[in-house]
Amino acid sequence: MKNSIKNYNKWAAILLFFALPILIYVLSDFPRRSILKETISILTLGAFFVTMLQFFMSRAAKDKLKEHRMATVIKWHKVLGYIVAGILLLHPFLIIAPRFFEAGILPQDAFIELITTSTQGVILGIITWMLMLLIALTSIFRDKLGIRYKVWRMLHGILSITFITGAAFHVIELGRHINIPMLWLISVLSILAVALLLKLYFFKTSIKA
């Protein structure tokens, strides 16, 4: 029983956050570009989906994760967190990286043009990039912050909600691989993710660590 629920959760996660986006990617007629560019795209897309998954791999989903050892879940949450934060922080640079290997505008010029474009999608991208940096730093230096764990957890949650909301808008607005199915998948998953945390804050104000 225990194992089957654990398995069920695992499979659900794999299906929703991995198989489904890949399926949409494969079935859609997005232009196929060089292997390097497609790898970068998949990596970034994957990182974003895992970021949404992070909400479900936290204490916010404690009810659903009863059968799992929370310590293990949190360990994975941390490992995955640092990996995807790394990828997403690199993401603006990964966009322009292929220009190192092909003719066209210089990568550094492309980068400057990118971050000085003042459209909604880009501004959201820059804001969420900074939020991601903040989330990563406050996690790495949690012990040095000198705040109580519960306060930190609240901070982490609020930053995460803000991040995922902004990031979802950013992805929907600018994503190279956005079509209607992808758009719905991202919207639903990100809304669920946010809802999960909000529920935690508004309906179960006191949870025991």
């Binding site: 232009p31 966009i95 043009e113 990118l114 474009t117 459209t119 999608g121 600018l174």
Partner: peptide
């Protein structure tokens, strides 16, 4: 021009 995806709206093109 077949497809434009990943456009950030900078207007360079």
């Amino acid at each position: 021009i077949n497809n434009i995806s990943g456009c950030i709206g900078c207007g360079t093109c």
